[in-house]
């Protein structure tokens, strides 16, 4: 065992890359839940995005087109969820599960001929001199562009929800759809758009996984990231700025356990691989134990079916 081989600088740098997929997926899910919809299909949308992005990037040779297709793929499959829950008034928990099961099957089917292929490399920030500054360089100035894009998206969502009129409407729909409806806001339209935004974000997250983080396609490669993203939304008590904290925390655990595996710690690999899931459970418990505080921020209409009877 050689713990000195783990460099803190590289650890932080790789943590930022590792947490980008879940960061993207959870910021999207935050918007969906803020509009009062619980979409448990994040895992399914993520993996659909992962294969759509991967296939498009390999076929065109352009990672950029890959990301666009990933967002489109995620949004398209989330549209199925949107139609079922908003127009067919189905149970959101069941529909979300269906989305995950369907997404996993669909992606495995689409991805058959892409196993073992290397995708084109994505654009990496490389500023002369600045990127070479010790410590700060690797942490801040030499990442893949997805890392910066994800951060910008978090900032954008925070600003949208806090300072724009549309953000206010979205939150109103999530707090009380009946009141929002009475005021003349199009509850269903707002929710469908929010769901599609969430799908696009989850798709991007999937592509960040298959094109940047891994980068390769394997069946079921999200391995629970979508579910962890759902847990992060709870952890963040529905606040965008805390999504960042949550995602980096989980990214940190994931990277640390990989580093420990590489350093040859005497703990068996399987037990180290369990750690992100166990930490998720512990964090969920810690959050829910403080019930009064955590429930305060949950959108009041979360998961409830909206049906305008008059």
């Amino acid at each position: 065992m050689d713990l000195s081989a783990i460099s803190p600088t590289l650890l932080v740098a790789s943590l930022m890359v590792a947490s980008t997929p879940i960061l993207l997926a959870s910021i999207g899910e935050l918007v969906v839940e803020k509009s009062g919809v619980l979409n448990l299909g994040v895992e399914g949308m993520m993996i659909t995005g992962a294969i759509c992005g991967f296939a498009a990037a390999v076929l065109t040779g352009s990672p950029m087109i890959g990301f666009v297709c990933a967002a489109l793929g995620g949004a398209t499959i989330s549209l199925v969820f949107a139609v079922l829950t908003q127009y067919f008034l189905s149970n959101q928990v069941a529909t979300g599960l269906a989305l995950t099961l369907f997404g996993l099957g669909l992606s495995a089917m689409l991805g058959q001929s892409y196993v073992g292929i290397k995708p084109p490399t994505t654009y990496k920030l490389d500023l002369p001199l600045i990127s070479d500054v010790p410590i700060l360089g690797p942490i801040l100035f030499s990442h893949d562009f997805t890392v910066y894009a994800a951060l910008a998206l978090v900032l954008g969502v925070w600003w949208f929800l806090k300072y724009t009129r549309r953000g206010l409407i979205l939150r109103a729909v999530g707090e009380s759809h009946d009141a929002a409806h009475a005021l003349g806001y199009k509850v269903v339209r707002v929710r469908v758009l929010a769901i599609m935004f969430g799908g696009a974000c989850a798709g991007l997250g999937g592509a960040a996984l298959s094109l940047v983080r891994v980068p390769q396609w394997t069946e079921g490669m999200t391995a629970g990231s979508g579910w962890i993203a759902l847990a992060i939304v709870v952890f963040a008590s529905w606040k965008p700025e805390r999504i960042l904290l949550g995602a980096y925390l989980f990214g940190g655990v994931a990277v640390l356990q990989l580093n420990l595996q590489a350093a040859g710690v005497s703990i068996p690999v399987e037990y180290l691989s369990m750690s992100p899931y166990l930490i998720t459970i512990i964090v969920l418990v810690a959050m829910s134990a403080n019930r009064a505080k955590s429930a305060l921020n949950a959108p009041a209409a979360l998961g409830r079916v909206f049906h305008a009877s008059r």
Partner: peptide
């Protein structure tokens, strides 16, 4: 037929069921 196709097929079944259920409750 790819083995995953059947998994997608089963997921699709749940989608359709949830959609048709509209007629049960409404």
């Amino acid at each position: 037929l790819p083995s995953a196709a059947i998994q997608a097929f089963q997921g699709m079944l749940l989608f359709f069921l949830l959609a048709v259920d509209l007629l049960t409750n409404f």
